[in-house]
């Protein structure tokens, strides 16, 4: 009984003429045999339309004066008013400085260090010790930023371990309230991010390294290459394409601050160093209720991020033939 649909499907897919009544009938028949599959697929499409596409349509409030009482379509158009407002916003320079500053330092320090860690971990001879180090290095990735924020607050408190050590060494005379000082904020953000993600980010590189053929190392050893030479001339070039792809992603993400992290560690005292685009969108939109303005700021951000992604992808394609798409 149920073998019929399979056969029908095969026949229908071989059909060549278009728009003849019999083709349409077969198409409908094929659609009917696929009714279960179609239902499953369309449920997913419906979800995407509601949760991805309706918010995309909702972006038009950036060009309108939206308030909570009226619907999106009722709100009056204001054109680029909110974008002009953003360019004249006194917070603009500070927000851009913090977003790009934190991202670039993360890129300069946080991008190469996992590669270096993977290279050196790969040189460990004992398989068991290597596994042990790996297991421990992943662990912080699974802590939430809230818990890590709590750990940092404990460490950096007036009676916390950092102040105690520095006082004991007579480097400082009185405890510093680190989280209340803007000048320490970037250091805290970057080092805690590194602590959390170093081992995790190295996984992909370690996987790429493990597929390098051992014969290449043996040949290099016979030629008299040392450990650093092998790392530089064999391991690193072999993972070049992995590095490129992750670099494209990192570049396209420079406007993305780690919002979970910023939100946990920021406060009104360190605001001048901690207010990033993502937080500014949250602050103006959710807290102050300036929905249209906040949506405009968010839209500028996503458009620039998309352009960055396309540009980085193109450059990588030109330089070393690897690209994301």
């Amino acid at each position: 009984m149920e073998m019929k649909p399979t056969i029908n499907r095969e026949i229908a897919s071989k059909e060549i003429p278009v728009n003849s009544p019999s083709t349409r009938r077969k198409w409908l028949k094929k659609l009917y045999t696929q009714r279960h599959l179609q239902t499953m697929a369309l449920l997913g499409v419906a979800w995407m339309i509601i949760f991805n596409y309706i918010p995309m349509y909702g972006v038009i409030i950036a060009f309108k004066e939206f308030d909570i009482i009226h619907t999106i379509s009722e709100a009056p158009w204001v054109g680029l008013e909110h974008f002009r407002e953003f360019l004249e916003d006194e917070n603009l320079m500070n927000v851009i400085k913090n977003t790009l500053g934190i991202s670039f330092i993360k890129l300069i320090i946080g991008f190469p260090l996992p590669i270096i860690f993977a290279l050196f971990l790969n040189e460990i001879r004992s398989v068991r010790f290597k596994k042990f180090v790996q297991t421990i290095s992943y662990l912080p990735h699974f802590l939430s930023w809230v818990v890590l924020g709590g750990i940092l607050a404990t460490w950096l408190a007036d009676v916390g371990i950092i102040n105690n050590i520095l006082l004991w060494l007579h480097i400082i005379d009185q405890p510093i309230t680190y989280l209340a000082e803007p000048s320490y904020f970037w250091t805290i953000i970057i080092s805690s991010d590194l602590w959390k993600e170093l081992g995790w980010s190295a996984i992909i590189y370690l996987a790429a390294i493990s597929s390098v053929s051992p014969e290449m190392y043996e040949a290099a050893t016979i030629d008299g290459a040392g450990r650093f030479q092998k790392m530089w001339y064999i391991t690193l070039p072999s993972i070049k394409s992995t590095i490129s792809i992750l670099f494209i992603l990192a570049i396209s993400g420079v406007l993305n601050s780690n919002f979970d992290q910023i939100l946990v560690l920021r406060n009104s005292l360190n605001d001048s160093a901690s207010n990033v685009i993502d937080y500014y969108v949250y602050q103006t939109g959710i807290i102050s209720g300036r929905y249209s303005y906040s949506a405009a700021v968010g839209l500028i951000k996503s458009v620039i991020a998309l352009i960055l992604l396309l540009v980085a992808n193109k450059i990588s394609k030109k330089i070393n033939d690897t690209s994301l798409f």
Partner: peptide, 19 residues
Amino acid sequence: LIGTVTLFFAGGLIPSFLL
């Protein structure tokens, strides 16, 4: 195609909140 677009562009915080 409908799905792939969602990987590149999202409405953002405020439109999602309103939804």
